[in-house]
Design a protein around this nucleic acid. Sequence first.
DNA 1: ATGCCTGTTCTACC
DNA 2: CGGTAGAACAGGCA
Length: 260
Amino acid sequence: MPELIEVEQYREALDVLCGGTVRSLDIADSAFARPRGVPLGVFDALVGQALTATSRHGKLLLAHFGTDGYVVGMRFGMTGRLLIDGTSPIEALEYASRRNDPAWDRAIIDIGGRVVAIRDQRRLGSIELDPDTRQLGVEASAITADALHRVCSRRTKAIKAVLLDQRLIAGLGNLLADETLWQAGIDPRRPAGALSEVEIDTLASTTVATVQTLSARGGSHTGDSFELRLDGARCVLCSGSMTHDTVGGRSTWWCATHQS
DNA sequence: ATGCCTGTTCTACC
DNA sequence: CGGTAGAACAGGCA
C-alpha cells in the first residue's frame, strides 16, 4: 500500500471533513467491498451520519460515524489513493501508473458536499463496514522492545516475514521493512526467535525512528536504501554488495556485508 | 514479451 | 498449532 506513512497522510486529509454529514455513498465495484459477498446495501446505513473522527491502525484507515458507532475501514492495496474533491495528499505512488483516471474510483462518499474517493487502479484495496481490528497486531510506528520481543519470541520464521505479518505488527510494508532491517544491520532471513535481546531493542527503536524519519521526508520510498534496490548496487553504509532474493514471499534487498 | 511491483487472502502441503 | 510456497486478484511499466 501505501504503507502506514501514506495511510496516515490520507487520514489527515480525511480528518478535515469531521463534522460533515454523509449525503451519499457509492461503491462502484461490488468486488471492492469486504467481506466478500457483503450486500452493498449495508453501507446505506451511513447516509445521514456525521463523520465524528478518523483513526488508523497499521495500514487500515478508519472513519468513525454518528453516535451508533459505525466505522468504515479503508484499505488501499498496492495502488490505492484517497482523493478529496479530486486532489490527494499523494499525487503519484511508486510502482503505480502516473495516469490518474477517475474511472479507477472504487468508492465515493459525499461528506457535507466534499467528495471523498478511493482511487485504486489495481483494485487490490477494499472498503468494509465495521472491520475487525482485533486481527491486527501492534502498531508499528510506536512499537516497543517488549512488544517486539513478544512477537518474535520462539518464532521460527524470518524476521522480515514477522515485520510484514499484519496480524503480528500492523503498518509495515515491503519498503519500510527492508529499510528498517538495513538500518538495524539485521539479515532479513534470520529466524525471529534467534534475535538477541540487544538486536530486538535495536530493531524496535530503529522501526520507530525509520517511520518517523520517512514520514518527515514524505513517504515509504524515501529511505536511504531505496536507491539501492537494483542489481550491482553498493551499500552506502559500508560499500558491501546489495543482495536480492525472496524473503517472506516478498522481493527483498539487503546488504550482504553489514546485515548479519 | 516477459517479469516486476509500497498488498491481502486463499489453498495445498509439510 | 507453525510455517512455506504458489496462486489469485489486477494492470501498467521497463
